[in-house]
């Protein structure tokens, strides 16, 4: 009851703040277009690196270029969504250090929503659009892919669950910054670093690393497991088939953990005010 009201209030507040930032961004339209393009171009270079590799080899870890592009596109799009929605979380440490977090605590809105919506950066659409371009290109070049209703359904579910998992990691990183206010780099290694990891096939990495991102930080559920299912390949860990479909559950669990961590972090801040 109280929980759901707080959630609604948080979403409302997130909407209010982000809408205002979008409006303020749009007053400088030329600047918006340029920064969005910059965001787009910077991420294009990522993919250019993959293209360069494929100019020398025919496959990477047994994956063809369209298949790698598929992994790249799904991960980038999911991460881009999370980055758009929650990317401001890495500023929390600075807010704790300079004390401006206090100004959020005197407003009648959940702090998480206020931090996440702060400086809502529409330019991050650049990353999302670059990711989805690559994804569309991959889908049109994947020969012999057998589409079934389940696979079709899995596509949007995969992207949304992936965005959920990355968002949870952003929040988790934010919660950690209550304790160590300069921890945003640790967070970045899991978010941006995780995204880069997922852009390549799991077969090129050591098994232990793949295990780690499956069972510890469940990044494998963002795209590896469901994408391999869509591509009709086995996962390198030989997990049972239903695991590929567990993305939404994993995302919900991650968000629950992140929510708890956030609450703990905020409580410790309010008792120490460090």
């Amino acid at each position: 009851m109280g929980e759901s009201r707080a959630l609604l209030e948080g979403l409302r507040c997130y909407g209010l703040i982000s809408a205002m930032w979008i409006r303020s961004t749009m007053t400088y339209r030329a600047s918006f277009v340029m920064t969005t393009f910059g965001n787009f171009a910077a991420t294009v270079l990522d993919f250019v690196a993959i293209l360069l590799m494929f100019s020398q080899v025919d496959s990477l870890g047994g994956f063809s270029l369209p298949e790698v592009a598929f992994l790249y596109g799904t991960s980038s799009t999911a991460f881009g969504l999370a980055d758009l929605l929650m990317g401001s979380m890495d500023r929390l440490g600075r807010r704790v250090r300079d004390g401006t977090l206090d100004t959020l605590l005197v407003r009648p809105a959940p702090v998480l929503a206020q931090v996440a919506a702060d400086r809502f950066a529409l330019r991050r659409l650049g990353r999302i659009s670059q990711g989805s371009f690559v994804l569309v290109w991959a889908l049109t070049h994947l020969d012999g892919l057998q589409w079934t209703p389940l696979k079709l359904l899995l596509m949007p579910v995969m992207l949304l669950s992936g965005a959920g998992i990355f968002s949870a990691i952003f929040v988790l990183g934010g919660a950690f910054q209550f304790l160590a206010s300069d921890a945003s780099e640790v967070q970045n290694s899991f978010t941006y670093g995780g995204n880069t990891l997922l852009q390549y096939p799991p077969t090129v990495f050591a098994k232990d690393l793949v295990r780690g991102v499956t069972f510890v930080v469940p990044l494998a559920f963002v795209n590896w497991l469901p994408a391999l299912r869509i591509l009709g390949r086995d996962d390198p860990l030989g997990l049972p088939g239903w695991v590929d479909l567990a993305g939404p559950l994993v995302a919900v669990a991650c968000c629950a953990v992140a929510g708890l961590a956030w609450r703990t972090g905020l409580r410790s801040y309010r008792s120490t005010g460090s």
């Binding site: 004390g99 401006t100 206090d102 605590l105 407003r107 009648p108």
Partner: peptide, 15 residues
Amino acid sequence: RTRLARRIGVVFGQR
């Protein structure tokens, strides 16, 4: 906290 926030005004000189 949030219920109170509607009934108080706060000004921090430093920030």
